[in-house]
Design a binder for these strands. Sequence first.
DNA 1: GTGGTCTAGACCACA
DNA 2: GTGGTCTAGACCACC
Lengths: 139, 139, 139, 139
Amino acid sequence: MYSRYAVRVHLTLDLDSEVPIYLQLRDQVVEAIADGGLAEGSPLPSTRQLAADLGINFHTVNKAYDLLRQQSVIRINRKSGAVVRRDAGSGPPEPGFVEDWEQRLRTLLAEAVVHGVAPAGVRERCDGVLASFRAGDRV
Amino acid sequence: MYSRYAVRVHLTLDLDSEVPIYLQLRDQVVEAIADGGLAEGSPLPSTRQLAADLGINFHTVNKAYDLLRQQSVIRINRKSGAVVRRDAGSGPPEPGFVEDWEQRLRTLLAEAVVHGVAPAGVRERCDGVLASFRAGDRV
Amino acid sequence: MYSRYAVRVHLTLDLDSEVPIYLQLRDQVVEAIADGGLAEGSPLPSTRQLAADLGINFHTVNKAYDLLRQQSVIRINRKSGAVVRRDAGSGPPEPGFVEDWEQRLRTLLAEAVVHGVAPAGVRERCDGVLASFRAGDRV
Amino acid sequence: MYSRYAVRVHLTLDLDSEVPIYLQLRDQVVEAIADGGLAEGSPLPSTRQLAADLGINFHTVNKAYDLLRQQSVIRINRKSGAVVRRDAGSGPPEPGFVEDWEQRLRTLLAEAVVHGVAPAGVRERCDGVLASFRAGDRV
DNA sequence: GTGGTCTAGACCACA
DNA sequence: GTGGTCTAGACCACC
């Protein structure tokens, strides 16, 4: 018999990172959804369960889930816990999202260019990442 | 006669952003270099000068410059001040940079995909940003 | 022949809402009465029946009915089940109700004003809601 | 010499209320802004200061401020703390706000009508509340 | 069982 | 000085 939350997602945290744990959690859930490992409707572990598995405090998981909820990525139900609400096929982005996102993209791409990655190389790596997402989607 | 630091770079800070000021400064310098507005060898304003211009604490500017120095983007001489050390034509990236950067790219692209931006749209925007850099380069 | 509880009331629950289910139930019954869809003396479905129809736990329905009873909106007989006890024509409010209610109104209107809804717009929407109640009353 | 945060706002909490403290705090700040007691640009006490004044934990104040920030009511600055960002004159509401708000209005007005407040009385009290806001605005 | 709230105290990052 | 993060443990509401 399967556990209710088939863990096809490997969450790896770096407790010494300068990136807060709850943001690492948020990012990994988002990547898992983009990968196709988590589809719309997939349940996530309960906050306390996941906290125990990861060896962190449940408040930290709570904060990550709350952030994902605010960003419409998951919904949280009193009885059945957190469930994925958005994936690549869930409709167009909310107004204002793209502008904000593109600014962050600009910053990130500028960093690569300045450090000597050729524009062709940047583009190639973007394509590679996108391809990996679509590959995951088919699984 | 021009000031020694020809300000063809418009630094705009949002003091209320969740992004720390010293990081906003770092990002804007990097974007200015990618844009072509600052080339290898270009001098940057002194920390005190820039702090005064922006109305912020000079320690904050110091922190941004120090970060840029650690990332090999600028060189700091006691005598000639801060000077751009790297631009798009300064050679290949340092070992390890690309791996780290690609992970951040993956996180950022995943966010867009999950929020409903089509892969084609993501690629299009990447191209747009890269084109804006090359256009700036010619100026 | 009609069922004893002619369902002229469409109860729609959002199981993922942050508003507890029993409160959503309470609110919808109250709105149905204000609408005129349920008049004084109208019977409500039994708790078990309604729970089955809505696919929720019957304790939840029980809690909603109990709250409505405490607020004098319905009457519960072991024999005849739950019956609407109050509607718009059932007499003046109980002492203390208006003061408590007006405080909540103040909070709600303040929220609209602060978010940029003009006072005229607020009043207009209040009128619209009241008109919808009176229209339903005639049905 | 004045304190930096002229306390023209009296915050009164009911620690035994079923309404969470952080929501009471949020509501009172919003009402104070609607009242005109807090205008755009007014500073709020620091989280720890306010917590000490109210005899509650600073995390609770933190949560209230964070909620106000998410709703664009205040902005939070690393150095100068929380500042009012929105008041009645700060522009039109964000898209989607009015629909959500009107649903809550409908629920609230239905409650009054069912408890025997005449529609004219409801309207009168709405006007009264709005008038009190405008009166505060002139101060 | 689930999530949500509040308290308490520690430590760090930012300016 | 400010806010932000993480931990820990308690209690409650909902289902």
